[in-house]
Amino acid sequence: MENNKIVLLEGVCKRFPAGKTEFTALSNISLSFGKGEFAGLVGPSGSGKTTLLNIIGSLDTPSEGTADVLGKRINLLSHKEAAQLRNYGIGFIFQTYNLLPVYSVYDNVEFALLLQKMSSEARKKAVMEALEWVGLTEKVKSRPSMLSGGECQRVAIARAIVKKPQLVLADEPSANLDSKNSHHIVQTMKRINKELGTTFIFSTHDEKVMQYLDRIIYLKDGMVDKDETVNK
């Protein structure tokens, strides 16, 4: 793997069974992402954005080709090793926030750290710091049901960055948000990217998000259509 490349995909294909035949979601994808990138996978529904994010996030494996993430080959990882990789190296942000409904804001953010054997003091400090980043220190005791969509997504961002991962994968993070909130959360992520050097990879088709991206990879029918660097 090249020195500053934290994600390296070589000829990645992903096929899913569809009845008696197979559906090809990704076809011969070769991409790499360096440290501190703020990149997006853009394309219409069914273009393979989420599938590619899932493979990079070690939630899925390629049918063909290789995927190296943070120095680990995804194809070869056991369930336990993949969990370890996600636990320490990768943060996830989902379109529907996926917050744990019975937990408070604090608990939701802390959850990511509970899996790492960290002292409660260090945990508390990290959680408060992450909530400060997203401007939610006032809402630590609130449950997700008491928050707006924008606030929920900010909690999800805090949960993703609290363990200071090298890589954050955000799957359509603004899809359920209004314009103002969309801008706000992407600006927050951009700030984290700049200040912490965290690599962000988005899947999106939201123009509001795209304007902040440094690199846009257009996917079409499971293939890379265009890979362009912007704002630089």
């Binding site: 636990n87 320490y88 996830f92 989902f94 744990l100 899996l115």
Partner: peptide
């Protein structure tokens, strides 16, 4: 979400 956050199955 548990699994995505790093929990084993």
């Amino acid at each position: 979400t548990y699994i995505a956050l790093g929990m084993t199955r």
